[in-house]
């Protein structure tokens, strides 16, 4: 067993510095690497480029980094839930690249899988395709999108073991598996870290080869963005 376990979040983020490009898992506030984000706030590193489907809310998730002006650029598909984000975007303090959600996932996966680029139909004929190479296959047009290049990938999983194997829960899975192994260093934080051998190999979603560092996170808030319920009839 190759041991990937590190003692804590500080050790997990060793080598992380300002100006780096990061991938962060999560959809809305679901499945975000809460511990890594909170450590980055404490480290006060600046000029980060963050590849993440969303940008958090004003006081949680990536919103915490935005509030301290730690992010230089966001690469996202949807950023609608954050007033501070809006202010920084409109004032020009923050550079924002909006890309289709499936393209975002696939540019991560391409980096993970060793493809330099992929062709996707998404965005053809729209401003997303401007300046990009296009090509016809079987009578349909596609846009060439390149694999992301990132220094660190921060993912959140439900369970993991010391070998770096990961299991995700429900829709907290989202972009997390696609970002594993897609950056130079992948850091996985898990709700429950178990000894190697205690997870069933049949049930593992991401094999430890895609993960460089793993640690058990603390104090997960797991905030619900839109609590929606129905009445018992």
């Amino acid at each position: 067993m190759i041991n990937k376990q590190v003692a804590n979040v500080k050790e997990a983020l060793k080598g992380l510095s300002g100006g780096m490009t990061l991938m962060l898992g999560g959809f809305g506030l679901c499945g975000i690497p809460e511990n890594a984000i909170s450590e980055m706030v404490d480290m006060d590193i600046k000029n980060l480029t963050c590849i993440s489907n969303n940008a958090g809310v004003d006081d949680f998730g990536l919103g915490l980094l935005l509030k301290k002006n730690q992010i230089k650029k966001m690469v996202s598909s949807y950023v609608g839930e954050n007033d501070e984000f809006e202010r920084q975007m409109l004032s020009g303090e923050l550079d924002v690249e909006l890309i289709p959600q499936g393209t975002l996932a696939e540019r991560c996966r391409a980096a993970q899988a060793g493809f330099p680029a992929i062709y996707t139909p998404a965005g053809y004929g729209t401003e997303v395709a401007e300046g990009k190479e296009t090509r016809e296959f079987d009578g349909k047009m596609y846009v060439l999108e390149t694999a992301f290049k990132a220094d660190f990938s921060f993912v959140k999983a439900w369970k993991g073991d010391a070998a770096g194997n990961l299991m995700f829960k429900a829709t907290a899975r989202n972009f997390n598996p696609n970002m594993c192994g897609a950056a130079t260093i992948t850091v996985a934080e898990v709700e429950e870290l178990v000894p190697a051998g205690s997870l069933d190999p049949n049930q593992i979603h991401i094999p430890g080869i895609f993960v460089q560092r793993i640690f058990e996170g603390k104090g997960y808030e797991k905030r619900i963005e839109k609590r929606t319920v129905r009445q018992k009839t």
Partner: peptide, 29 residues
Amino acid sequence: FEGEEDADLINAGKQTITTLEGASFFDSA
């Protein structure tokens, strides 16, 4: 139902949801 919300289980609109028999979860790609 109220009290049965799961922060790990939401839809694309970020609302809490449930699943039905035969449901499955998967990554974004």
